[in-house]
Simulated scan of single mutants.
Amino acid sequence: MKITEFLKNKKGASGIGTLIVFIAMVLVAAVAASVLINTSGFLQQKAATTGKESTEQVASGLQVLQIMGSHDNSNITKLAIYVSPNAGSSAIDLSQAVVSLTNGDVKTVCKYDSTKATFKDLEAGGSIFSDSNLNFTALSPTEFGIIVIQDADSSVADATPVINKGDIVAIALHTNATSMEPRTLISGSIQPEFGAPGIISFTTPSTYISTQSVVQLQ
């Protein structure tokens, strides 16, 4: 009789131990599942954000439509670089853009300064290189001006020159710090805050004709 009771009590103790192990496994699995769910949610959000930023970086950017220059019979003194956003590009704030130019000897880096008179709206037409519109000679070697050519939604303003789909502006430069004599190879870029840069690459004419002060360079 005593042996039978002993065996019954032993089975009960074994069952309780198994139950404790089972509960512990369930708790561990619950904690692990919670960690995995939180981690997967974080990774999903991170992947979505990274994907959006990557798409924006790849799709966005500037394209250089053409480059016009004005000379003084011996040197290009004024540049107007026509730019527009790439197809599918997000809006681009030109106040955060950086323009770089080099002739092989000197490299000039320019930024936009909204505190100066470096902005002009020519949507109604006018002369690009007329100082009555935008005073090129007032531009320092380290800054560029903005001339609005086309802006249907009025997104390009003096303090916030933001270009989006369909907008065309001219980046104005006074090239007094970069020699652009005849047959000079000029290269550079217009690097926006994000996205692909607009590429600048041209060779100045072999000679400057006094009766033709404005020339197309690119």
Results as ranks from 00 to 15, higher is better:
173 L>M: 11
173 L>T: 04
125 G>Q: 02
135 N>D: 14
157 A>D: 12
161 P>A: 02
147 I>P: 06
163 I>A: 07
135 N>V: 05
166 G>R: 02
125 G>D: 02
129 F>G: 04
148 V>Q: 09
135 N>P: 01
144 F>Q: 11
144 F>G: 10
151 D>G: 08
140 S>T: 15
163 I>E: 07
164 N>I: 10
163 I>L: 06
141 P>N: 11
168 I>W: 01
163 I>S: 07
148 V>S: 07
179 S>H: 04
170 A>M: 05
140 S>A: 14
183 R>M: 15
166 G>D: 02
157 A>Y: 10
144 F>K: 10
148 V>H: 04
125 G>T: 03
179 S>L: 09
148 V>A: 10
160 T>P: 04
133 N>V: 00
135 N>Q: 10
126 G>V: 03
154 S>H: 11
132 S>C: 10
155 S>V: 03
183 R>Y: 13
159 A>P: 03
162 V>H: 03
130 S>G: 14
150 Q>W: 01
150 Q>F: 08
159 A>C: 05
181 E>P: 04
174 H>A: 12
176 N>Q: 13
180 M>Q: 01
128 I>H: 08
143 E>N: 09
178 T>P: 01
173 L>N: 02
160 T>S: 13
149 I>K: 14
160 T>Y: 11
151 D>Q: 11
131 D>K: 15
166 G>N: 04
158 D>S: 14
177 A>Q: 08
170 A>F: 06
